[in-house]
């Protein structure tokens, strides 16, 4: 790790002040992505600003019938939350499948979506559940938030404060983990939101995407059978030593069906 200066502000305004005031400041939330990155010397921030003591960024609440989760809320907190279990139980399950217990005890929702790893789980949840990302400056619909591989709509000094999820109907998430890293090789979230079916796919492409054909098919018949014969085009999907593009395309179809079964069950 390169040397840096560490800050632990206690309010959002302090955070934003630091972020814009420092030459090359980096936010740290759970550190489960940032610290390994720093250890490999892949980043060299001058300052590291810890969100851990900013109370207003943390916590889970019910609001307007939906769910609002603060940016620094940990995966384990989402997984264990009674409110989440009541409003969107499958979101708790999804959080419970991120990494391992120790990663879930540190890693945060905000950190995960800001990092926007193409094989992260949360992006599927945000897009599939039609969530809204709240920042210190504005609100951004999830679909516009995730712009590319490790890229988001965030501006340099913009900080995610929370994510708001409308209360959905049936929800199912099926993840095919990378055998080595356990990140999502493919993860598909199927949900009924505001009367429409949404199918969001993570892991398969450079960035989370919706699968319109599947959404259409499920709108008329919400069952796994409705997806029979539907495939996504392998062109443009990710390929690595663990999964070719064709294999990922297959997994999208298989995981989508399994997600529907979970949602229906």
């Amino acid at each position: 790790m390169y040397a840096f200066e560490y800050h632990r502000p206690t309010s959002l305004s302090e955070v934003t002040g630091l972020v814009s005031g420092k030459e090359d400041a980096k936010i740290i939330a759970g550190g489960q992505t940032l610290i390994p990155t720093l250890k490999q010397r892949l980043a060299q921030p001058s300052d590291v600003i810890d969100l851990g003591a900013v109370a207003e960024l943390h916590g889970i609440r019910e609001e307007g019938g939906g769910l609002v989760i603060g940016a620094t809320t940990k995966h384990a907190e989402v997984a264990g939350s009674d409110i989440v279990r009541r409003l969107i139980p499958e979101l708790a399950e999804l959080a419970n499948g991120i990494g391992d217990a120790q990663v879930r005890n540190r890693g945060t929702l905000g950190g995960s979506i800001c990092n926007n790893d193409p094989s992260a789980d949360y992006p599927a949840a945000l897009v599939g559940l039609n969530a809204t990302v709240h920042t210190n400056k504005r609100t951004i619909p999830a679909e516009e938030f995730f712009t590319g591989m490790f890229e988001t709509a965030l501006e340099l000094d913009e900080i995610v404060t929370a994510v708001a999820f409308p209360k959905p109907g049936r929800v199912g998430y099926a993840k095919f983990p990378n055998p080595a890293s356990r990140y999502a090789t493919v993860g598909v979230l199927v949900a009924e939101v505001d009367g429409a079916v949404r199918v969001a796919v993570t892991g398969a492409g450079p960035v989370v995407f919706r699968w319109p054909e599947a959404e259409q098919a499920l709108s008329s018949n919400f069952s796994a059978a409705a997806l029979n014969g539907l495939t996504v085009d392998a062109d443009g999907l990710n390929a690595d030593i663990h999964a070719s593009a064709e294999y990922r395309a297959n997994l999208v179809a298989v995981m989508a069906k399994r997600a529907v079964v979970r949602a229906a069950g």
Partner: peptide, 28 residues
């Protein structure tokens, strides 16, 4: 060095975490 093996797990405020993936200053 990729936060995966768990040889470093300790409890912080009663919860297990990977001490290789937490800054010492964060334990203040």
């Amino acid at each position: 060095d990729t936060s995966q093996c768990g040889a470093c797990v300790v409890h912080v405020d009663g919860e297990s975490i990977k001490s290789c993936t937490m800054l010492a200053v964060q334990a203040n």
